[in-house]
């Protein structure tokens, strides 16, 4: 059993400041077969406010998967990741880093902070769409998510 079988749309939170990338991600997800909602925030502070349902995100849904860019204004991706993983109420939400950084230290650092996976933004559109769809397929149709489990 996986998310697509539980009868509601999957919730994605995309933390990304580049509108182009936001749009590309949207495009990739609209072509998707799985029903999903995509929420978007543009910096790290907003991301934390969204997750903690602070103003103006008091009605925000709890995401099933977070797509997090590293290079963010105000609070960068590493800090956001660290806060999520330090917060008992958030730490179970899978975080996928999606970034153009290939720096070794970024890869190692994020895994040290318990990231769930680290993906490079492919430069080619086809590849990009494929990657976003793979992420979606993997997280929404293959893995078992904590949000499926009623505790």
């Amino acid at each position: 059993m996986s998310l697509e079988n539980i009868g509601r749309a999957a919730e994605f939170l995309l933390v990304e400041d580049n509108p182009g990338d936001v749009r590309l991600t949207c495009e990739a997800l609209t072509e998707s077969k799985v029903k999903n909602n995509l929420s978007i925030v543009g910096d790290g502070m907003e991301a934390m406010a969204f997750l903690r349902r602070e103003e103006p995100y008091t009605d925000a849904p709890r995401p099933d998967v977070i797509l997090l860019d590293l290079n963010l204004p105000k609070k960068n991706g590493l800090e956001v990741l660290e806060e999520i993983k330090a917060d008992p109420s958030l730490k179970r939400i899978p975080v996928v880093i999606i970034t153009s950084s290939e720096a070794e230290q970024d890869i190692l650092k994020t895994y040290d902070l318990h990231v769930n996976c680290y993906v490079n933004k492919p430069v080619d559109l086809e590849q990009f769409i494929k990657v976003v769809q793979s992420i979606e397929t993997f997280w929404l149709t293959i893995v078992k998510l904590p949000s499926e489990v009623v505790d």
Partner: peptide, 17 residues
């Protein structure tokens, strides 16, 4: 340069698609 270029490339590709 890679970032803006990725945008140019991606959206021209999207156009073409």
């Amino acid at each position: 340069l890679q970032e803006p270029l990725r945008m140019v490339a991606s959206f021209t590709q999207l156009l073409s698609r």
